[in-house]
Amino acid sequence: MNKNKNLLEVENLTLQFDTDEGRITAVDNVSFSVAPGEVLGLVGESGSGKSVTAKSLMKLNPGNAIYSPETKINLHLENRSVDIMQLKSSKDMLVARGGAISMIFQEPMASFAPAITIGDQMVEQLLIHTDYSVAKAKKYSIEMLDRVGISDADKRFKQYAFELSGGMRQRAMIAMALSTKPKLLIADEPTTALDVTIQLQVIELMKDLVKEFGMGIIFITHDLGVIAQTADKVAVMYLGKLIEQGAVRDVIRNPSHPYTQGLIAALPKLDDLDAPLVAVAGDIPSPLERPPGCVFHTRCPVELGAQCRSMVPDFSSVASGHTVACHLIEASNVLDKKVAVS
């Protein structure tokens, strides 16, 4: 038995890439955890480092990736722990990749080999990761396709991914990802390319499956509404930094980082059509020109001056389990403490 109650623990993940234009920092000192049966929503705009964070968990980043020595990623399974950063041999990696951790992507075609039928791919995966016979793997694969709401599963089993509609392909990918009964599922923008109607079907399907299989999920999206409807916990990223983290209700109802507040204010709300649309001022800086101090200071409406421009803010707590990296919160927390003391 593993005493650790978390399934996944990521500590101080820092990831840089060597590029033609220089070394860029894609993820900067990020820590989070996921418990079994828990859905962690990872939200942020394009380029904030969501996908590379996800890929780090399976060491899927390409050769130009450089992890800092402080980076720790531990996967706690029932009877053992896997130190992902230490994985080297492709056999070790397979355990993490197709077995204990599965990943689904925005574009399902990325998961399917174009010239192999969906069924053959599912069976092949099961033969690698389980001791199923071919007949059993086939039967189970068809059951999984049926379970994710694909009608005529035995017919679809023999089809190629390109023959399915976008929504069906997404379901087939989920079926394939879940067939090995992973402990952790990483879903990178699984509904971004879908219509809202199909997105709702996929969200409900995924929620049902978490309940049934009890796995942990990292659900990546740029859509706060999708986070609100899927996640238990949320972590907000901006330019490679985690800037706010907490229970989904706390973060959405009481966003405390100026960036999270700006993101929520920028969403067009259906219940108030007269509300003006307010953008977060300015553009997201290029990773080659990452601002020093607080990474958000170039766009922050309440920036405090030298402190924000030169010092990286620490995490401070606004409520139990709700933390924010912002000097403003730090300052008001200090004030609160002083008031409490006097």
Binding site: S165, V196, T197, Q199, D223, G225, Q229, R249, L267, L270
Partner: peptide
């Protein structure tokens, strides 16, 4: 309209799900 994901987590399950494609 109903399928637009609500910002309120407590709305989960209230949306009218359209089946099929």
């Amino acid at each position: 309209l109903s399928a637009i994901p609500s910002l309120d987590p407590d709305d989960y399950g209230k949306a009218e799900k359209l089946e099929g494609e």
